[in-house]
Design a protein around this nucleic acid. Structure first.
Lengths: 384, 384
DNA sequence: ACGTATTACTAATACGTATTAGCTGACTGG
DNA sequence: CCAGTCAGCTAATACGTATTAGTAATACGT
């Protein structure tokens, strides 16, 4: 069980003819205690020559905290990486974490019983803080950990505003409103919806409720027969659309809750010999990279997911610094005054949703596309 | 800089009226030293009541190794998560790592100068071992670390067989052979290729060389004008295809090195008013989930990426156990006898590649699809 | 009754670092 | 010339655990 012996500060000290304390001081660049430049250089040389690397475990032990941040994914294993959502989050998260000198630990939990892993990681000092993604069924324990002072940031968990958790949220209510109003604005009356399972998920319910509200505000009705449930994947979109097509009265437009299911739905419509959008219009949700290249190009909502990952990491790091120095050092805590952050998604109009037949002031023609910049994102949106 | 005080073994010991040693023994379930069942139960009760969680840092320090495994991605930041390759690897990797009681640290390196991070992580004991993905330009240092006894497993790095690194590889030579032979078998003469940049990448060169070789073995020639370079993204596929379409003589078929670029290429062909596959056939590579739902459904190669992640993790863990116990405990090291593992990719035939006009014994009709099982993968392939 | 096992523990130490308190000698101001 | 400062270090200790060596008490066989 022994591991290879690594070079220690003591060995470096001996070789350099100084004390271990000196080596430690030099490596941590402490300014309050001064070290002669010659000595410093000499020690650094020797350390380099000996291949000295500080032992993370010893540092963590004595400093009382790790320099790992965790990304905990409370989602069924299958959902995590099929969809580009989590990869996008990781992209933003790791970018900021790295700049702050942190490593990231990715832990996926599909079973609610394994929720105690979070406690283990935080209380065991494996990580300094965590970002939490996914629907937290019993957040009793989570909230308690947060109240004990463990830095926790949740993603898209705004439904429980009474929580003590910090939360970085994409405003999907706004997104659903944007895209459903767009469909209404074009003039569709009979609009269907391909949603996610499980139907009881808070986020899913919120989205459906918002969709329904917008319809009703504009004199439409969400027919229960026009709601179908998929499971993130294109094939479930295909199946759901098949069911819609089997009904006697077809929908004029279909709102799909993600782009992958929209792709499946479009395939089903094509297979039925119908045209998109003149027979049935389709919109997606997520703004995946390929959405500009489907047949026809897919109208969708671009959610700033990378930015969400970034902001989550930054909030976590701020939180870390604010709890460590009991007296909140001025300024730093700007992001912490508000517990909930909202990021606005953006509508990306392409051909799959059709367009107004009657001219109007802000006509959207077939070839016109709204060009958007994703906020300094490393994932620039493509508009064909 | 202080962190909240956590419950220690000493505190539990005091509360339970035993020594710290006893608590340690009980928690590690050491069988060589026996503890009375009553005492054990009593201590565990108290520990639970006090919310004791072992400190990871202290354990690592005294045991000399961490229980983290790293996944190091030597890739430009942008490439990592746009493509589902890495997410698939993570899926398989984390699945096995978790079962072995390890956490996973994901570290992405885009700058070769930051390659020393690997040294820092391994020698600093942050992680017990690493899985390496991406083209290692200077693997001088990596090999040295491996020779020093640090467990390292590389992914798809088989070009340097002289390496001391263990390697889990997908046999892309086989994959390229399968798909290019399929095109030739259908009867196409003039076949183009949309490749990756950078062109000097070893894997890219190998794939192009293989493609070329297959063509030449079958009396064709890879016209230099028919090679284009994209960058993983659909829009680069679109652009590359536009260029091919601008030439006076069109290709009959195009081999795209991934599915996303194939999507872009298909959009370009449609935009030019041409038909797929009757005017130009398209094949992709990767077997992404949506490939069955493009217009037309995309013929592609399914690479067992999740399985690659799993096998990498398993090999790393085996390696860990074999180096820790100097006397290689029998059996366990089965996977370690061979340094290089190959996983075979599978051809998935759909409509985008067209089909033989003349009947033949093993005719592939428009609607027939080769159904495949991915090897116990949690990502079952979809065939429409 | 006596030596030996066995059970059930405890005391002491090591792991590698950060940190606190202190020590030495040189320089300074008056 | 002496008190005081300060630069440049060192000794000692703490962090929380695993592990080794050892001890006290009981059981056992003869």
């Amino acid at each position: 069980m022994k591991r290879k012996s690594s070079v220690t500060q003591k060995q470096v000290a001996k070789e350099a003819g100084v004390s271990q304390t000196a080596v430690s001081l030099i490596f941590n660049g402490d300014t309050s205690i001064r070290i002669n430049d010659d000595t410093r250089k000499h020690v650094l040389d020797i350390a380099d020559k000996m291949g000295y690397v500080p032992q993370a475990a010893a540092r963590s032990l004595v400093q009382g905290h790790s320099n790992n941040l965790a990304l905990v994914l409370l989602r069924p294993h299958q959902q995590v990486f099929n969809d580009p959502y989590i990869p996008n989050i990781i992209t933003g998260f790791s970018e900021v974490a790295r700049k702050g000198g942190f490593r990231i630990v990715v832990e996926q939990i599909d079973d609610a019983s394994r929720l105690s892993v979070i406690r283990t990681m935080l209380k065991g000092g494996e990580v300094a803080g965590i970002v939490l993604s996914g629907s937290i069924s019993s957040h009793q324990e989570i909230t308690q950990l947060a109240e004990e002072g463990h830095p926790i940031v949740a993603l898209s968990h705004s439904l429980n505003l009474n929580t003590t958790l910090h939360n970085i949220d994409i405003d999907h209510v706004d997104g659903v409103q944007q895209i459903s109003k767009h469909l209404i604005n074009i003039g569709y009356e009979r609009i269907a919806c391909i949603s996610y399972a499980p139907a009881h998920d808070e986020q899913v319910q919120l989205r459906i409720a918002t969709f329904q509200k917008v319809l009703e505000e504009h004199g439409r009705r969400l027919e229960p027969t026009l709601i179908r449930y998929g499971n993130y994947d294109p094939d479930s979109g295909y199946t759901a659309m098949k069911e819609l097509l089997a009904q006697k009265q077809l929908p004029e437009a279909v709102y799909c809750m993600n782009d992958l299911m929209a792709m499946g739905a479009m395939a089903a419509i094509r297979d039925a010999g119908l045209n998109i959008p003149s027979d049935i219009a389709i919109v997606g949700y997520d703004g995946m990279r390929f959405a500009a290249f489907t047949e026809p190009p897919l109208t969708t909502i671009h959610a700033p997911e990378v930015e969400q990952g970034r902001l989550a990491a930054q909030t976590l790091i701020d939180l870390l610094h604010s709890t460590s120095s009991k007296s909140l050092s001025a300024g730093k805590t700007k992001a912490l005054t508000e517990k909930v952050h909202y990021l606005k998604p953006k509508l990306v109009i392409r051909q799959s949703c059709g367009w107004k037949h009657k001219t109007n002031t802000e006509a959207t023609t077939q070839n016109e596309v709204i060009s958007i910049e994703s906020l300094s994102s490393s994932q620039p949106l493509l508009t064909k």
